[in-house]
């Protein structure tokens, strides 16, 4: 990577994080053209929550591109074997059948936990780990699926359902902890490693990887990294990860006629509440500050 003097940028990133009351890890990187990165504590491992779905999708697409998996393979998601979750198939009541590629789309576009678990089962944990290692990425990035994360949170909070677990984690009068905040027990990686996932995904061509990128472009919300780029002509392809005080997003920001820039913002808020628009906005501000010095016209 070309060393750029980013100390002033990093100082402003720290200031934004302090003002929002979060611990922030940031990694921004130009995905094409001359290399360039901006980093804030991007070698610190953190629990990535639903961001595990991003490297999982990369592995799936690589295996499809290699002919080891079929994109249109049917996948059954019976109601009684799904862990209930807030979005997508995980919030439905009845049995569902999808193709693998639709599983990937729902997993990425609405962070569907049932689809994340189904895809992990379909690819197989051992194969995921083997492939991540071959890519030079840590196996911990996909240590587990969503159902295991949910079960651990229920156990740690002593609650019987997800709503009660979320209330326990959000209690302002307690400092509720869970093993799923801990990179030693959860799916975990550094901001730089998640950035490397984006870099690999953008280096690939072919229909399987196009499908993954298209699903990221359809992400249903734009309140985090997207809040830093309120421009209708700027394309955002992103994946969030959320658990209690953890709020993350890995995204690719595409300004017209510029090289795309990947940006990873991993945060842990001091406040436990579920709804913290100020923190979501700070993630947008961190992303904007980190991306700005990397913007470059694509004819350069």
């Amino acid at each position: 990577m070309t060393p750029v003097d980013t100390s002033a940028v990093v100082a402003s990133l720290r200031e934004v994080a302090r003002d929002a009351g979060v611990t922030a890890r940031v990694h921004a990187t130009r995905l094409t053209g001359p290399p360039g990165t901006v980093a804030l504590d991007d070698a610190e491992p953190v629990a990535v929550a639903s961001l595990y779905k991003l490297p999982l999708a990369l592995v799936w697409a690589d295996l499809v591109a290699a002919g080891d998996l079929a994109a249109d393979q049917p996948v059954r998601l019976p109601a009684d074997s799904r862990m209930p979750g807030p979005t997508g198939v995980a919030m439905l009541l009845d049995d569902v059948s999808l193709t693998a590629r639709d599983v990937v789309r729902l997993m990425l576009a609405v962070s569907d936990n049932a689809c994340g678990d189904a895809l992990l089962t379909l690819v197989g944990r051992a194969r995921v780990h083997e492939h991540l290692a071959a890519l030079g990425l840590p196996e911990t990035l996909v240590r587990q699926g969503s159902a295991e994360e949910t079960r651990a949170v229920l156990r740690d909070t002593g609650t019987g359902d997800w709503a009660a677990a979320q209330r326990a984690l959000a209690d302002p009068d307690r400092a509720a902890e869970t093993s799923q905040y801990d990179p030693a027990f959860a799916s975990a990686g550094t901001a730089a490693q998640v950035g490397q996932v984006l870099r690999l995904l953008w280096s690939r061509t072919g229909p399987a990887h196009d499908l993954v990128r298209d699903a990221l472009a359809h992400q249903a919300w734009r309140h985090r990294v997207g809040s830093g780029f309120p421009h209708d002509d700027v394309t955002l392809l992103g994946k969030t990860g959320t658990l209690g005080r953890l709020r993350h997003e890995a995204a690719v920001v595409r300004f017209p006629h510029e090289h795309p820039v990947g940006v990873v913002v991993l945060t842990r808020a001091a406040r436990p509440e579920r709804h913290l628009p100020r923190v979501d906005a700070a993630i947008g501000e961190l992303a904007r500050l980190a991306v700005a010095p990397l913007r470059l016209p694509d004819d350069v």
Binding site: R18, D19, A20, G21, P172, A269, A270, R271, E273, R278
Partner: peptide
């Protein structure tokens, strides 16, 4: 003095 606590109070 403590931004997140301040914001929590305002909320």
């Amino acid at each position: 003095h403590q931004p997140p606590a301040h914001d929590q109070l305002v909320d």
